[in-house]
Write a protein that binds this DNA or RNA. Structure first.
Lengths: 194, 194, 194, 194
DNA sequence: CATGAATGAGCGTTCATTCAT
DNA sequence: AATGAATGAACGCTCATTCAT
């Protein structure tokens, strides 16, 4: 019973976070109203406070959840060995698609903007980003032998995330063409370099 | 006299926009209070409404002003001819520095986020961005003979702006190393391609 | 069985009232939360509503209980006869102590304040106070022969309860010295007068 | 101009405090709603916050104002010399009337109750009460030569304030008769003692 | 009988905007 | 033109009460 209840409580938290996410995407962290989130979560505003202490906490937890999911996604590259760059190139279309997804890119924008304002969240993001970077660098370093690997990775991530921002400003970019070019850049960054 | 007054009114609008910009950078579009903007502009809150109809309008106008300035900046590349890519490469350190400047990148984030919420602003941004793209493409097309030039330009801009976002999440990136790598990417995009 | 259940129900009501009393003393009528009362009563918040219709009703009943207990206490003076004033003087230290007890005086304050707001409670208090006064007057009239006995009693009660209020404002009063003086006032009120 | 403005601001604060006082008497500190206070003050809720930081601050300031007024009232006894006790006896009817005034006694109740909950206010009240006590003791000590003067004063104040509380519980007390008896108690406390 | 999850009205407070001067 | 006092709608959040189990 206790376990069932716990699961249920986790479900509720999950539901609230997902509802909040939708609201945040639609209205921004500040524009999203607790009433709106409650409605999205099929819940009364008051009840949300059984699971979260404040709107602020929901934002923080949603961000954490997002990064954790990203981190898990990286696991699939763990045992790629020297096929990692191949995989990256193969998956590049997916990566670009994911980053230019209007929902995700909007959310990333909100998160980054929040980080410039809220030091607690900034610290948490820096920390989680460092974990991800360390992980990917460790995977890559097996096959990519360059001393500026971290910088190259940062450039790669900047490119992909930058495409997300550009897609907001100009949604007409030819994604296929972009992927074609990006692929060659990845080759340059992680293959010709090795 | 009428002209003097008009000029004075423009000065006031300009002063308000600059004040708003500082406030927006410090607190975000939503977080900036009209009272704060008024103080920055050395003006009473009420008086701002002689020059702007709403905070929303100030935001819109500030964004427009920003893009206009960017557009003007591009003018200096007008007569570069086939030296344009050289110039871009030469100026890359400055471009990266400008885009990773916390003030500017924060503002860019706010602007992009606002565009996802406010269709009027989104349209205006798309329009001004198209102008800029057209201009740069026309400059570049003289020396860079590729059929996917627009896409390459988009990739370049994504990279540089992406570095701005990354710099918020990870302010420790080695900018010199980044510029070194970015330079080679620009070479690849616009030179080897030619 | 029905009787056992009834008794049990009364026990529960009693337990709730005691729990409420503790909460009211700690936080005031308004400040005490139903959740807090429920916790004190080792009961779920919802279950309290099987025994009381509302928080308001708990307050009313708690006040009634208090006065009933006071009334019962007075019984011990019933057969004092002409020793009653002696007893009052003897017990004065205890009376002062009881009235300056922070718990009781806080509660008295809350009750009096509530009476100024809630006519139903005010009426109930007036009624129970009248009963007490009648009782004490009847006991006293045996030995104290004055025509303004009721007034003298009221003055006495005012003094003792007033000490309770003063003790909140100035907790450093020398209670022994106060009792010494109060004793002489009681003598004056009920003895020299006789 | 600056002085006129300042005066006006003080007027507003005064008006708010008076409005709050009426609301507090009617509904208690907690029961009184800012909207109600605003209405009483002929002001919008928002505007109150130009003059006070919070409801809490209004309460604190109202209490302070009250004590200051009381303190000023005491000034008239400053030069009474050995006529002071005569004056006290003469003014007793007024003192009792003032203390049994439903508005004042209700407010005193709220203040005392608040002091049991809010240490900041408790400290402020203790402090202001000490000032008043010191002042009256200094006036009285000229003519009343007893070593327990402070205690006697405390007993006197307890009696008069206690009558205020009693008057809430039993509004039918014969005030004239009470004053007659109280007068003799005052004589006993401050005259026979000398 | 008993729980505690769930509700939603209503609170104190903020702030873009308006208005009197 | 210019001020800043004034407005009031709307927010995040609380908590007495109800309801599903």
């Amino acid at each position: 019973m206790s376990e069932a209840l716990e699961k249920s409580a986790d479900d509720r938290r999950e539901r609230i976070i997902r509802a909040a996410e939708r609201s945040f995407i639609a209205s921004g962290f500040h524009g999203a109203r607790m009433a709106q989130i409650a409605k999205e979560a099929n819940m009364s505003p008051g009840h949300i406070y059984h699971y979260f202490e404040s709107k602020e906490q929901i934002i923080a937890e949603m961000i954490r959840t997002h990064f954790e999911e990203k981190l898990e996604t990286l696991e699939r590259y763990r045992d790629a060995g020297d096929k990692l760059v191949d995989m990256m190139i193969e998956n590049l279309a997916d990566s670009v698609a994911a980053n230019t997804d209007p929902f995700w890119s909007t959310l990333m924008l909100e998160i980054a903007a929040e980080a410039t304002r809220n030091e607690e969240i900034a610290a948490s993001i820096r920390n989680m980003n460092a974990k991800m970077r360390t992980q990917v660098v460790s995977y890559l370093s097996a096959s990519v032998k360059v001393d500026d690997l971290e910088t190259r990775l940062e450039v790669f991530v900047a490119l992909v995330q930058g495409l997300g921002v550009r897609n907001i400003i100009n949604p007409n970019i030819d994604k296929e063409a972009v992927v074609r070019i990006a692929r060659e850049i990845v080759e340059y960054l992680f293959r010709r370099a090795s």
